[in-house]
Design a protein around this nucleic acid. Structure first.
Length: 601
RNA sequence: GGCGGGGUAGCUCAGUAGGUCAGAGCGCACGACUCAUAAUCGUGAGGUCGCGGGUUCGAUCCCCGCCCCCGCUACCA
């Protein structure tokens, strides 16, 4: 048994999340964590809403609310969506808790005390009316090279040249049209070059495991070559105060949102431990060098998880060129594996909320079964390369694979058992075909489990579905509906027992992918429907006197073991109700029309 | 521009340290069956493995060139 930290990317709370987000990190991390619990490991799965930074400020201004109100609203939406999806977090929290602020400040203090924070005066754009940093991408103007209108501060889309915002002709803020002011400003930078050697050694050691996806390790090593100090503060009035004399009181100097967001993995672990009344318990996942940590995210976040966060950890521990001592949290574990997904596209286009090329998690779950969506993501998600979500493919996977393959097997099995016995029949003498199927299906535990442990979800589902196919073939070959005579009753019982056993096995094997329907399938076979625990929303008080907020949590400790559980003859089996809903082919046109309509509106 | 990924049956994708490596699932055609959400089972048709060169006894797999798609490359997060 190992301690396994499932560190799941923190969704940004400037709006509701779309299915691309959960396809990249939500579903894969949940499948992994559920499996690891079943395999007997002590899993801590944490995440939360990322609520600081400029985009939230802007969205709040547009909505006419405070940034906290905007974050409150979106955090709640995300929490509801994730619970509906069945994501079994031990704790899903947020970055505006007092606990998070305190942990981030301790990290900063430690990094600063060890000398890995350097101070620098830089030139930056601010909005004259608010005094806030105006990031390059929020500045537009006329391109000084090609003369095109609408060039962004960082790049001209017309001629493709990289720009400096100060060079733009007639620069203006995209937010309110005012002319930005370029001023000298004091910032703290994380001294990444002083940590480069330690980072490189760590990456080499990680590469040697051969477990990281090749593109992730290569990309990580690549960005190390041009490593530079990186600003970790901003001129902004929304964020975490800088815990130093002379800075703390400055209302418009805050820590950069990314410096704070990645600390969330640690602060959420600490919050979890405090909430269960065992405040030092988080150390089992962070201080024990034997503990494993898996970080799940989309590829746009690789930098922050294979460079910024490890750099913060190394600096805090004093393990860079400048030496130093660990702070009160001690020596903290670096990521075991950075599991990055590629991107999901939408009918061939990139997801874009502003262009309305988007399907929100909420809309998906309002109309379709969560497990149908999870099945799609697991079997066709952007695991090693970008993949495309199309409605026709979603309908096809759901109807032809999930419903016709697995759902129908469950249904025909339960129906045969119900009609012929009304309960699980006893097992008689085994014929070779019976024994072969039982052995083959039991083998699926090792095969599928091994693939999930290596985050090969597509292949894992494929193997499980192959076993489903074999059971369907067994039923067709043995033709239990023809075993009618009294003299064939024992044989009929044996065939149905074997079939039901295999269906039960495969239900466990598929349960990390399809948690809520696994419970329904279990009920159909006379079980208690408790194969997979489900997360819940809880309204909690802030531990340190801040405002209350909703979290996701759950009780997952008595996970169903990842192995065959023999059926008990005599268990009553009722008339089954289909577990999965078959989709009407008209769904495709309806949804495409909805997209078109949104795009034009 | 730099870095990375990808172009294989109608669709979604596996695959090869170069020689039964031309594959799977779905779709399609035909047949079987009827327990099951018209589900299931069997059989079959379908591809010059992006294009052009090269290395080799032999290349989808190695090398060179080219074309196309996607992502990363920011004081966005």
């Amino acid at each position: 048994m190992a301690h396994i930290l499932s560190a799941v990317a923190w969704p940004y709370a400037n709006g509701p999340r779309h299915i691309g987000h959960v396809a990249g990190f939500g579903v894969p991390s949940d499948v992994f964590s559920r499996y690891m619990r079943m395999a007997g490991h002590d899993v801590l799965m944490v995440s939360g809403s990322d609520e600081h930074g400029t985009p939230i400020l802007i969205a709040a201004d547009e909505a006419g609310v405070t940034p906290q109100e905007l974050a409150d609203r979106n955090h709640r939406l995300i929490v509801e969506d994730f619970v509906a999806l069945g994501l079994a977090y031990d704790l899903y929290t947020r970055t505006t808790t007092r606990n998070h602020h305190a942990v981030v400040q301790e990290l900063f203090r430690g990094v600063h005390a060890n000398g890995y924070v350097v101070e620098q005066t830089t030139m930056g754009a601010i909005s004259p009316s608010t005094g806030r940093t105006l990031p390059d991408r929020y500045i537009e103007g006329t391109c000084p090279i090609c003369g095109a209108e609408g060039a962004r501060g960082d790049q001209c889309d017309t001629c493709g040249n990289q720009l400096d915002p100060q060079d733009l002709v007639d620069p203006r803020s995209k937010i309110n049209g005012e002319t930005p002011r370029f001023v000298e400003t004091q910032h703290f930078l994380l001294d990444l070059p002083a940590l480069a050697e330690a980072l490189s050694a760590w990456l080499d050691e990680r590469e040697a495991t051969g477990l990281w996806r090749p593109n992730v390790i290569r990309f990580s090593q690549n960005i190390l070559e041009e490593i530079r100090p990186r600003a970790i503060t901003r001129d902004i009035d929304w964020g975490i105060a800088i815990p130093l004399e002379g800075w703390r009181e400055n209302p418009t100097k805050k820590l950069y949102v990314w410096f704070d967001a990645v600390v969330g993995y640690l602060s959420a672990s600490i919050e979890w431990a405090r909430r269960i009344g065992d405040p030092e318990r988080w150390r089992d996942w962070w201080n024990d060098p034997e503990a494993l940590s898996y970080y799940f995210m989309g590829k746009d976040n690789i930098t922050f998880h294979s460079q910024i966060w490890p750099a913060e950890l190394l600096a805090y521990a004093g393990r860079g060129d400048k030496g130093g001592e660990p702070g009160t949290y001690g020596e903290l574990n670096l990521p075991t594996e950075v599991v990055s997904s590629e991107f999901l596209t939408m009918e061939g286009r990139k997801f874009s909320s502003s262009k309305k090329v988007v399907i929100y998690v909420r809309d998906m779950l309002a109309r379709y079964q969560a497990d149908a969506f999870r099945f799609f993501v697991a079997s066709a998600g952007p695991e090693n390369q970008d993949s495309d979500f199309t409605w026709s493919e979603f309908v096809r996977r759901t109807n032809d694979e999930l419903v016709a393959g697995w759902g129908n097997l469950v249904n025909r099995t339960a129906s045969l058992v119900h009609k012929n016995f009304g309960e699980i029949p006893p097992l008689g003498g085994l014929e070779p075909a019976d024994a072969a199927l039982l052995e083959r299906v039991e083998g699926a535990f090792d095969v599928v489990g091994g693939l999930i442990a290596r985050n090969r979800m597509r292949q894992a589902v494929g193997e499980a579905m192959r076993a489903v196919s074999d059971v369907n073939r067994y039923v067709s070959d043995t033709e239990p509906w023809k075993l009618k005579g009294e003299d064939q009753r024992e044989r009929l019982g044996t065939v149905l027992h074997v079939t039901a056993q295999c269906v039960g096995d495969l239900n466990v094997v598929l349960s990390p992918f399809l948690p809520s329907s696994a419970n329904a399938v279990d009920v159909a076979l006379g079980g208690a429907g408790d194969v997979q625990p489900m997360p819940r929303i809880e309204e909690v008080e802030d531990l340190d006197g801040g405002a209350s907020y909703p979290i996701i949590t759950g009780e997952y400790s008595d996970a169903t073991p990842w192995r065959r559980r023999p059926l008990v003859p005599g268990t009553p089996v009722g008339k089954p109700v289909p577990v999965f809903t078959k989709l009407d082919a008209a769904v495709v046109e309806e949804e495409l029309a909805r997209l078109e309509g949104a795009g034009e509106g």
